[in-house]
Design a protein around this nucleic acid. Sequence first.
DNA 1: TAAGGTGCATACCAAAAGGTAAGAATTGGA
DNA 2: TCCAATTCTTACCTTTTGGTATGCACCTTA
Lengths: 108, 108
Amino acid sequence: MAEKPYNCGIGPAFEVIGGKWKAVILWELNNQTRRFGELKRLVVGISEKMLIQQLRELEEDGLISRKMFNEIPPRVEYSTTSLGDSLNIALAPLADWGGNYAKLHDKK
Amino acid sequence: MAEKPYNCGIGPAFEVIGGKWKAVILWELNNQTRRFGELKRLVVGISEKMLIQQLRELEEDGLISRKMFNEIPPRVEYSTTSLGDSLNIALAPLADWGGNYAKLHDKK
DNA sequence: TAAGGTGCATACCAAAAGGTAAGAATTGGA
DNA sequence: TCCAATTCTTACCTTTTGGTATGCACCTTA
C-alpha cells in the first residue's frame, strides 16, 4: 500500500492510517497518554508484535511520540502529537459512522 | 481484515472501507453517478479486476448501487446509496486532513 | 532459587490483498 | 471480414499484512 499520485486526500490519509490497527491505536491515545501494556489490553486482539510495529510506524509518521523512563521494570508512554490530534479529530466522524453501522448490522 | 468486537466505531468502519481502493472509489461517486469506464480513468492506478471487485463489495455492503442498461456496447452506472452518502460525509474531514498532510510531505 | 512483570526483538509461517494478462460477449462500423 | 468499444471474468502470481512462538534483559518479590 504505497502509491502516488492521488487526486484527493483520501489516498494519503489511508497510507498513514491504513491497515487493521493504526486508527484504533491512535484512537485509544485520544486525549490520553497510555503505556504499552495498557494499549495491549485496550486494543482487543492485537499481538505484541503488531502493536510495536504499528507504534513504530505511527511514530515515524509523526503522529505519536514515545517517552521512555529508565525504570525497572521498564516504563514507556505513548501519546499523540499535535498532528496525531488533528488526525483523531478528522477520524471522529468516521468513528461515529462506524458505530452506527455496527448497530445496524447487529455485530455484537 | 475481519474481527470483532470493537470498543469503538473505527473498527467496523475500516472493515467496510479498508484497503487501498474503496474509500477512493466511494469518494469519486460523491454526488455523481459514474460509469465503469469513468471510474477506471478517475481512480488512477487501479486495475479492472480490482475496480470490479471493490465495486461488488461496496454494493454488497449497501454503499453503492449499480444500474445496468441493456445496450450494446454495455453501459453500467454506479452511484452512492444514502448509506454511502452518509459515509462520504464522514470521510470528508479525513480527506481534508490527507490533503494537508500530502502538502506538508511534498508528495507531488 | 525461582518466578513474574515489562517492553521489546526475531524467525518463521499463513492468509489476505493486490497485480498482470488473457479472454468472453455483443453489435456497429470500416 | 475484422476490429473497436465496453463491462466483466478467470487464472496465476507476487507482495503485503498479520499471527504464533520464543527469547532477552532487568529487577522485585516470594
